[in-house]
Amino acid sequence: MSDLSETPSETAETAVLPAGPPTTPAIEVTNLSRWFTGVHAVNDISFTVERGQVIGFVGANGAGKTTTMRILATLDYPSGGTAKIAGYDVIKYPGEVRKRIGWMPDHYGTYNNMTVLEYLDFFARALGYKGQERIERIADVMDFTDLGSLSDRLIDKLSKGMGQRLCLGRALIHDPEVLILDEPAAGLDPKARVELKHLIRILAEEGKTVFISSHILSELDEMCDSLLFINQGKIIHHGTSESLRKGSAETSLIEVQLASSPERLQEWAALAPNVTFKDATKNGGRIEVDSVDDEVIATVLRRMIKDDLPVTDFHLRERRLEDAFIEILGEIEASGTPIVS
């Protein structure tokens, strides 16, 4: 990453700048709160994101996602608590934080009467790049986001997907360590979504920390190392999608396809230990194993084959993330306590 010198207004900040150790977490939020008149948008949340992780930030509209992200991007102020990016406090060292983040808002901003190249050139100049370095940075970004063929096209003539790629490119001009993407896939068609997902995957492989919010849980599941659920300004779950799917269940549901009738599966399940037949399907049925231990499940499946059942397919039936999310919300409503793992 190139060295961006501080603006004059940040001289005082630089003078008392702590060393930014590379071992500090990429994002560190401690007891963060933000309240507006009559609204508690973010309520005492804490979480940590390690460097190189891709974290999905999930929540309903008005849950506090955008407020949290704006605070992390130094665009808003916390009413209480602290937020740090790569060890730098967002209030005390906004200049240092800005060097390290790439921000992509939900309603991305573009200009009329301006070409793709001019747009990127403006932000490259505004970030302090000069001469050959500026040209190289823009070329890199255009290459990465595949915008080379569109360089002379006016921005208002771009499709939503192209515009979103352009905005991702803008966020990457200064090669930030942490990317904060607020609903980047909102309003995109399936093809553009796949392209965007692909670009984010590449960035993750390159070791960038990506903090991404979305309503589409299945998409986040494919991209993210872990998920952070927020509801009414509070963190209600932080963990991997696998742990979320498993939840607090003590049994496993397996869907089995057979070359014969489902009755054979039902008969077999009645005699097999640890197994209960749940229901029949068109070409088989669902059985419940009274354990979530992988070894026990493997033993059951081996026995099924060994007992000559004409199995054509079987797979572990996992909870959908959406169901898990709704379930967590239900548990919170029932107990009144957030579940944070």
Binding site: L4, T7, S9, R70, A73, T74, L75, R98, I101, W103, P105, H107, Y108, G109, T110, Y111, N112, F123, A126, L127, G128, R170
Partner: peptide, 13 residues
């Protein structure tokens, strides 16, 4: 145009 935030994140005061 939602561009003010983007500009403020650059070095432009």
């Amino acid at each position: 145009l939602n561009t003010m935030d983007l500009i403020q994140l650059t070095k432009l005061s």
